[in-house]
Amino acid sequence: MGNSALKAHLETAQKTGVFQMTGKGLTEFPEDLQKLVNLRTIDLSDNKIETLPQLVERFTILKSLALNHNKLRVLPEELCKLKKLETLHLNSNHLTYLPSNFGQLSALKTLSLSGNQLRAIPTQLCGLRHLDMVDLSKNKIQAVPDAIGELQAIELNLNQNQISQISAHISHCPRLKVLRLEENCLELGMLPPSILSDSQISLLAVEGNLFEIKKLRELDGYDKYMERFTATKKKFV
């Protein structure tokens, strides 16, 4: 891709606050971007970017960052200084963990990490007070830890992992309404009954695990879950 194309994109971004350059075979974060500290949106999805530079911290008013389908293995700690960032899409990369200061992304509402190499749910997420949606599907997560009880999200997607254990603390999540656990390694006895009887969850998706769905209906608390499910369903009709 020629410099003239990049220059045209940069000129547009200067005016609009939006820089979008997807599917261009970029192997690195465009250095000239650092001059545009007024950006609110950056989309560099479908490229071949392997690292994010430390200068990413200069985008102090950035609200949305999309780097889906790249080759990222780690994220710089500097990313965590983006206090205005609300949406972060990092699907289909090679990430195995998140920066230790990730909990400082205090404005974050939507986080997509589907199709990475995470082996555990990052506990840093539990400090994010405005988080609405977390997508951790298609990773290698094996368990849901006690710390999950602090998660503020409304929707948590854990489809297509290797989960065989779930802490009952997930029932304590104050805002969790949608929990997706399809295509994991769960046996029925590993599903905490409190998810049904004693949580805010009104949509529990557990198809494709090591039990028949109809067996779920025999569990204590299923009636209470169905009350929440039906009440929520009515709201959307």
Score class of each variant (00 low, 15 high):
Glu86Leu: 02
Gln142Gly: 12
Lys177Gln: 15
His94Gln: 09
Lys177Thr: 12
Lys24Asn: 13
Val144Cys: 08
Arg129Val: 10
Ala168Val: 01
Leu82Cys: 06
Leu151Cys: 07
Leu39Ala: 07
Arg129Ala: 14
Glu31Gly: 07
Pro122Tyr: 09
Asp146His: 11
Val56Lys: 07
Lys138Pro: 00
Gln104Met: 13
Phe59Pro: 06
Asp43Tyr: 06
Lys138Leu: 11
Gly17Phe: 14
Phe29Thr: 06
Val18Thr: 15
Cys80Tyr: 11
Gln152Val: 06
Leu82Ala: 05
Gly2Ile: 05
Leu65Pro: 07
Pro76Arg: 08
Val18Cys: 08
Tyr222Asn: 05
Met1Ser: 14
Glu212Val: 01
Ser171Trp: 03
Val18Arg: 13
Leu219Thr: 04
Leu44Thr: 06
Thr41Asp: 04
Thr60Leu: 04
Leu10Tyr: 08
Ile141Glu: 02
Asp198Phe: 02
Pro145Trp: 02
Leu44Glu: 06
Asn91Ile: 00
Leu111Val: 03
Ala8Glu: 15
Asn68Phe: 10
Gln34Glu: 08
Gln142Phe: 01
Thr60Arg: 13
Glu77Asn: 11
Asp43Glu: 10
Val37Phe: 10
Val18Ile: 15
Gln54Tyr: 00
Leu179Phe: 12
Lys224Glu: 13
Asp146Arg: 12
Leu136Arg: 06
Ser137Leu: 05
Lys177Trp: 10
Arg40Gly: 15
Pro99Asn: 06
Val56Tyr: 00
Leu33Gln: 02
Thr87Gly: 00
Asn184Cys: 00
Leu39Ser: 05
Leu98Pro: 03
Asp198Ile: 01
Ser199Pro: 10
Asn184Met: 06
Thr123Glu: 13
Ala153Ile: 03
Leu118Ile: 04
Ser45His: 11
Gln162Asn: 08
Asn38Val: 01
Leu128Lys: 09
Tyr222Val: 09
Gln152Asn: 13
Cys126Met: 11
Glu207Met: 03
Gly127Asp: 13
Asn70Met: 01
Asn70Pro: 02
Ser112Cys: 08
Ser106Phe: 07
Asp132Cys: 02
Leu113Trp: 07
Lys138Gly: 01
Glu77Ala: 14
Leu82Gly: 03
Thr27Trp: 01
Ile49Gly: 02
Gly17Cys: 14
Lys235Ala: 11
Thr12Lys: 15
Asp32Pro: 04
Pro30Asp: 04
Leu158Val: 08
Thr96Val: 07
Leu90Tyr: 01
Asn3Lys: 14
Gln152Gly: 07
Leu79Pro: 05
Met21Cys: 15
Lys83Gln: 14
Arg217Gln: 14
Leu111Pro: 04
Ser100Ala: 09
Gly23Val: 13
Ser199Thr: 13
